[in-house]
Amino acid sequence: MSAILSIHDLKKSYASGQVALKGVTLEIERGEIIALLGPNGAGKTTLISIVCGIVNASSGSVTVDGFDIQRDYRAARKLIGLVPQEVALEPFEKVWNTVRLSRGLFGKQRDDALLERILRRLSLWDKRDARINELSGGMKRRVLIAKALSHEPRVLFLDEPTAGVDVELRKDMWDIVAELRAEGVTIILTTHYIEEAEAIADRVGVIARGEILLVEEKAALMERMGRKHIVLQLAEAVEGVPPALAHHRLEPGADGHSLVYTYDARGPRTGLTQLLNDLAASGLRLKDVQTRQSSLEEIFVDLVREKAE
């Protein structure tokens, strides 16, 4: 696989003095789905906006399929579709006309059959002659997606696509992402919903304060960074951690009948054997054992905290 999007040392400072990007370098492979995860104000939208041509970079370079976004802007932009975060649509225009405009703007010849397929896919076909201001919020988002797909992009940016969106649309969106991926479209989505990244991305990039903290295969990230918890359900109630087990990293469970052991699954020694031996020697009787792995959410919070320290 070769990179379809190469971002090199991209920096952006706004006129207000705010530094939005502090030198982002990122390679995105052809056909992958990458989620850029970060809190509000991390620089996700700025990054996307520069690649799409909406914001000027302060320095650095970006190429899309080998085309520089400055020198070969036409070739680069033709490949890109963008679903923006904010719903920005002309209120008095009809759905069909606005989607048709998008296709034309990108220099594609009129293709009503394709637009019909897209609108049907997004459950917008019945609304094609409705004005935008007659649509619900979720429908408007669908229109934004239809506009982005109307010119058959090879790289699709979804900027917080499911923020404030109902379950149905979210599911639809994920299905569409899967279909596009099958067609070989590269998808970059930003989100601060970790479940979203977890559910659909191949790789996850964590971005905070204008920097990429890490980019990893989702599974590897989970595994590498994953802290595991073992919940030891006891037959009898305990008050705090029994003295015999005090040297283990144990915390009493909330229900008074359990102990929680947290360990780093990637470490060479987990301390599990010793813990279980000591547990047996202490005379406590086990009723049940559960294990739990950190969610991306916890990993993310850890990463941001580490960086801040």
């Binding site: 932009r77 963008l82 923006p84 904010e86 920005a88």
Partner: peptide
Amino acid sequence: YFPKFIGTTYEILSAPVS
């Protein structure tokens, strides 16, 4: 001005047009 006001200029700016 109107596209600027409602935010739809994003599309014109991101389109392959001079």
